[in-house]
Design a protein around this nucleic acid. Sequence first.
DNA 1: CCGATTTGCTAAACCGGTACAGCGATGCGG
DNA 2: CCGCATCGCTGTACCGGTTTAGCAAATCGG
Lengths: 339, 339
Amino acid sequence: MGRPTIADIARQAGVSKGAVSFALNGRPGVSEQTRERILRVAQEMNWRPHSAARALGGARAGAVGLVLARPARTVGVEPFFAQLLSGLQAELSACSTALQLLVVEDTAAEIEVYRRWSSEHRVDGFVLVDLQVHDPRIAVLEELGTPTVVLGGPRRQGSLPTVWADDRAAMLSIVEYLAALGHRRIAHLAGLPAFLHTQRRIRALRDAARRLELVEAYSVPTDFSDAEGAAATRALLARRERPTAIVYDSDVMAVAGLGVAAEMGVAVPGELSLVSFDDSVLARIVHPPLTALTRDTFALGELVARTLLAAVEDPLGRLEVKTATPRLTVRESTAVPRR
Amino acid sequence: MGRPTIADIARQAGVSKGAVSFALNGRPGVSEQTRERILRVAQEMNWRPHSAARALGGARAGAVGLVLARPARTVGVEPFFAQLLSGLQAELSACSTALQLLVVEDTAAEIEVYRRWSSEHRVDGFVLVDLQVHDPRIAVLEELGTPTVVLGGPRRQGSLPTVWADDRAAMLSIVEYLAALGHRRIAHLAGLPAFLHTQRRIRALRDAARRLELVEAYSVPTDFSDAEGAAATRALLARRERPTAIVYDSDVMAVAGLGVAAEMGVAVPGELSLVSFDDSVLARIVHPPLTALTRDTFALGELVARTLLAAVEDPLGRLEVKTATPRLTVRESTAVPRR
DNA sequence: CCGATTTGCTAAACCGGTACAGCGATGCGG
DNA sequence: CCGCATCGCTGTACCGGTTTAGCAAATCGG
C-alpha cells in the first residue's frame, strides 16, 4: 500500500474519517481516549497530510511567495538577499510554511506571477521587495487581495502591511561620520533611481550636505552592477577636484570601487575613504576591510515572515513595523582626508 | 463571485464539466468549435486552474524541491548557487513548475524535509547538491521513490539520475597552466573534505604533481568560509618556503586570500599567483582581477532542471549527463614566479 | 422522572479538478 | 437498410482531506 490516508487510519482504528480528522487537528469532538488511539495509529502508519487535499478545502496553501525581478543571467543574489531568505525561512519553517522563490526577468513578469500564483491558490501571501517610486505592483496586489508584506516603506500609498528601516537616518549617520573626520567633498554611488530607497538616500545626502555645509556632495545613479560601480568610480577619480570620500549603495559596487582605486594608484584610506551602505562578507574580506553600514538582515527576514503570517491570519490588519536603524561599523577604509 | 471554477465555465458555455476539462487541456473529446467557445469563455472569466485540485487527482504537484543544508545565519549563498537557481528556474518556469527552496541547519534536517515534502506530495522531485563522500541522503531518496537528480556525480553508488562536471580535468588544467608558467610549489585551499568534489580535486592535484614533478603540492582543507580562507593563507605565507601559487576552491576564499596577501605586503602576481576554482563577479571586481575557472552555471541549472523533469516524466530512466569541462579564464592574478 | 443539553461519534457533502463509462447521433461498409 | 465504429458530449465517481448535519447515549436541572 502506498501513502496511508485518513480513511486507512479510520479503518484501522475502527472509527470514521471525521473522527480521525478531529483527532489529528486537535479539535473537540472526540474523547481524549479515542484521540490518543487515533494518534497512535497515525504515528504507526507514518501518516502525513496530503498538502493538496488540505489546500483544496478552501484552507491555506501552506506556502508564501517571494518573486524577484532581475535579468536571469545577471542574478548576483547579493549577501543581502541570502541573509533575508535565511531569516524568512527560519521563521516560516517554524510555522511549517514553505517559501516559493522565483526570479523573473522584469516587473511585468513579476506581476503576472502574482496573478497566477494567487489565482492558482499556490500561496497564502507574498513578500514584496525592491519597492519602486511609483510601484505598479502595489495596486495589483491590493486588488488580488492576497496578504502581502512590503519590505521598504514607510508607507506611501496603499494599505499593505509594511516593514521598513530608516534609510534616511542611516545615510545621515554616514555623512556625519565622514564630515566629522574632515571630509568636505563626498560622492554617493547610488542604485537605480527608480527604487524608493535610492531616492530617500539621495535626498538624505542632499539635506545633510546643506546642514553640514559641505563643499560638494552629489549622488551618481547606477544600475547596482559591478561594471557601473567601477566605471563611475573611475570617472570620479579622474576629475581634477576629486571627492575625498565615496559612499556606495551596495557592497559589490564598493568592492569594485576599491579595485579601481588600487588600479589607479589611489591610496585607501590615505587619499580616499570608502563606505559601503551594505555590510557582508565581501566588505570584510577585501584589503583594506570596508567601513560599512551593518544591519541584522537575518532578523529582518524573521520579522517580515512574522508580519506576513500575521497578515495571513488576519487579512484586515494594517501593520506598519519599523526596524532598528542600521549602525555604522568602522573598519579601515575610512580616515582623516590627507590635506 | 470569487474565483471561477470549471463548473462556472461549463454553465456559462452550456456544456458539462468534463467537456471543459477536455477543452482546457487540449485533449480530444470535444469538437474544435466547442473547444474554442470554451476557451473564449474561460479567457473572459479569467479562469486559472486551482493547483491543489489538480495535484489531488494523483497528478503532479507542479513543483520541485531544493534543500540546502547550511547553518542559517552563515548562508553566503555564493554566486554559484545564485546562478544555479537562476538557471533552474528559467527552465522550470518554462514548464510551469515552481521551485520550493529551503535552507536548513544540517543534513539530518534536510533528510527530514525530504520525507515530509515527499509524503505531503508537495513536490514532484528533488535536486540534490553538495554530494558527500558517504552520503546518507542517497539511500533515503531512493527509498522515498521521489524522482531526484544528483548534481555532482559521477555516480558512485545509487541509481539516481546524475548531472556532473569533470572536476578532475578542471583541476588538471589549472595545475598544468601553473606548471607551464614555471610554478613548482603549489598550495590548494580545499573545501570541506566531506564533499565528494573536494576529494576529487585533492586527488587530481596529487596525481598532477607527481606527473609534472612539482617540488611541493598539497591541499589544505577548510570549511569554505572567508575566515578559514584568510587564516590558512596567512599560515601559508608565513612559512619560510612559501608556495608561489595558491588555488582556492571558492571565490570567496580567493578574495579573502588576496586581501591577506595585500595586508602582508606580498605582491600579486609578482610574488604570488592566485587561482579561483569558481568564477563570478567577485573574481572580476577585485584588483588584480583573479584568474578563475569559468563554467556556465546558469546552463548547468537549466540542464539539471531538464534532467529532473525528464525523470519526473519517466521515473525509471537512469540518466547520467556530463557537462562541459570548465575552462580557465586567465586574468591578472597569475604570472611567471619571481626567481 | 422527564425534557433539555452536552458529549462522542457517524455519514455525507464539499472543495475543484481529472478520468472514464456510457449514450445518442452520425458515418460507413457491406 | 442494417450492424458497427466513431464522434462529441454528459454524468458521475474519485482524489484526501475538512466540515456540517444529525443521531444515540450520557448527563444535567428542576
